[in-house]
């Protein structure tokens, strides 16, 4: 099977490391060497998508399935789109939303699922919650070349609240490919306040690939009492030799800072941890 790729952002082309000048020490680097942009760049244009389905995930979050124009290349799991809406004064409001779905592989028509948490005093998220099937929305993407999964394994995914969205795309893509590496090659630990706050609950609850951690209210009969994520919640998914592991942490800035501390505390090298923070700080 070919790798689902986003045009122009894939390919760990083996580029030479930064030049050393006259015997200067090489500069530190982070992650695999990125892609050198093509001359003139590879601009992604705004496209109009149609809302194909709306699914309520929780009392505050809904998933919009958007139908993209034919021929739109599939995203790489972890990437996001930028959505824009014109204000009545003519200016644009734009915000980023991670893709939740696995890449839509041809011959399936190009679609992406975006899961939007509604902030009542926010500008764009309440608007996206007011859309109906058949409505149109303008977006651009996919973007992101760091918080992406290109087949790395083993992988530990750690998400807090709406931070589960890009991680769901990674997990679903791995499952879509037939769970390469088998049990334990990928695991998602997702932290939510209560069972009612879990996105994709029917899919994630009870999955062998997923651990749900409840911080305030645990479901009846849960073995783990409610409480903040701890290093013990993560340790079972950190291999004895953690060097090969890649960890993806996503959530609010506060969650991301706490969770990355736990991951490093479990023995994972900081260079193996990719972080994406969004939402309240």
């Amino acid at each position: 099977m070919t790798e689902p790729t986003a045009t122009g952002q894939t390919g760990q082309a083996d580029l030479p490391p930064l030049p050393t000048l006259g015997g200067l020490p090489p500069l530190p680097t982070l992650g695999p060497v990125g892609r050198r942009p093509p001359p003139g760049g590879a601009r992604r244009e705004w496209v109009t998508a149609t809302v194909e389905a709306c699914t309520e995930e929780t009392a505050h979050a809904r998933t919009l399935r958007l139908r993209l124009p034919d021929g739109t290349p599939a995203h790489t799991p972890g990437q996001h789109y930028v959505v824009r809406v014109r204000r009545d004064d003519g200016s644009w409001a734009q915000r980023s939303y991670s893709v939740a779905s696995a890449p839509a592989l041809p011959p399936a028509p190009p679609t992406v699922d975006l899961t939007v948490e509604r902030l009542d005093d926010g500008e764009l998220s309440p608007y996206l919650h007011s859309l109906h099937v058949g409505d149109r929305v303008e977006l651009r993407g996919p973007f992101g070349g760091w918080f992406v999964w290109r087949g790395e394994r083993p992988v530990l995914l750690v998400g807090g609240g709406s931070g589960v969205v890009p991680l769901a795309s990674v997990l679903r893509a791995w499952q879509q490919r037939g769970r390469p590496g088998g049990d334990g090659a990928m695991h998602l630990v997702v932290s939510v306040r209560s069972p009612a706050d879990l996105f994709y609950a029917a899919e994630l609850t009870g999955s062998p690939d997923v651990t749900v951690v409840h911080t305030r209210t645990a479901p009846d009969g849960a073995a783990r009492p409610p409480g903040r994520l701890t290093v013990d919640d993560l340790r079972p998914y950190v291999p004895a030799a953690p060097d090969a592991l890649t960890v993806y942490v996503c959530g609010s800035a506060a969650f991301a800072e706490g969770a990355t501390g736990l991951v490093v505390g479990a023995g994972v090298p900081a260079s193996a941890v990719r972080v994406e923070a969004f939402g309240p700080s």
Binding site: Q9, V33, P37, G40, G145
Partner: peptide, 25 residues
Amino acid sequence: EPGFWETRGYHELGDPWTEQRYDGD
């Protein structure tokens, strides 16, 4: 010598007034 984000889809220069957000903008 493009850096971390500049080799991961973001613009070379990044001028906010001309919205140079992503590669090729």
